[in-house]
Amino acid sequence: MSQMQPSGGQTGANPAPRSFQEVILRLQAYWAAKGCAILQPYDMEVGAGTFHPATTLRSLGSKPWAAAYVQPSRRPTDGRYGTNPNRLQHYYQYQVIIKPSPPDLQDLYLGSLMAIGLDPALHDIRFVEDDWESPTLGAWGLGWEVWCDGMEVSQFTYFQQVGGHDCRPVSGELTYGLERLAMYVLGIDHVMTMPFNDPDSPIPLTYADIFRQTEEEYSRHNFDGADTAQLLRHFEDAEAECDRLLAFPADDPKSGKRIIMAHPAYDQCIKASHLFNLLDARGVISVTERQAYIGRVRALAKKCADAFRLTEAGADVAEDAGAHISGVAQ
């Protein structure tokens, strides 16, 4: 594993990035250099980077793990037809997940802020209590929201439980809200005016060039277009399918191997969660029903976590003391 450069204030941070994608690319390069596997987004609609199986499922069991990735995230209720300066129904999160959490995770994190041009010698960076809980995933952890000059730029969490299972060892999770962070670094007031690629490119593209129309289309879809009867049916289908997949015997007669379909089942859990979010945006779920739906998604998440723990990737294995990421010599 590579060594992190000392992060003393005097050395100064990198020059400011010039575009949204440069912020992303620098984070990718930084975490790659720290030894994380740079994964690609999960190919399904999710509400947050945490839903990616690289986080939810891989935080279970004892096998060491280190991954970083961009995850497009959808929050149907946050749609504002592209007019709000910082609210979007589709946005990007940058997610880092490392198991076991290294002792210098805070320093590693601060290094990533330096990498995108936020110099702690000029800014006020603070770790402010914020306990994280995902009722739909049956997960919780303790940590902070990280403030830069009074603005929340990341969520920093030590996972304690996922899918109802205690996390042993504990994973450290970092989540950056990319648009907001990039807007701050680039000095942009409205997300739609943010340069997506370099403004000096032959064909400069802003965030609006890429996403204004889709924000409009999806806002209308989420609030008025989506067929609620169909969504309800799909929710039931996903729920049933998840159960059905998990009911298969572990031994696969065709390959002769033991194959538990934890990931395909978890896909159905992700689907159910997104369908619930859409139903919520359509305003057809009452306050009391809400809890019941969340409980149903949580039940799926727990079953998938149970199943994953029975697989090779989710099992407990003998400790490999040497394998962990750290920027500070031990």
């Binding site: 300066p85 010698a121 000029l122 006020d124 000059d149 009074g150 603005m151 007031d189």
Partner: peptide
């Protein structure tokens, strides 16, 4: 929580911006 070379100007600007939003 810190002193800076610009006497907190960057920090204050940032906070002001968040407040304005």
């Amino acid at each position: 929580n810190t002193v800076t070379a610009d006497h907190g100007q960057t920090i204050l600007n940032g906070n002001q911006k968040v407040l304005t939003a």
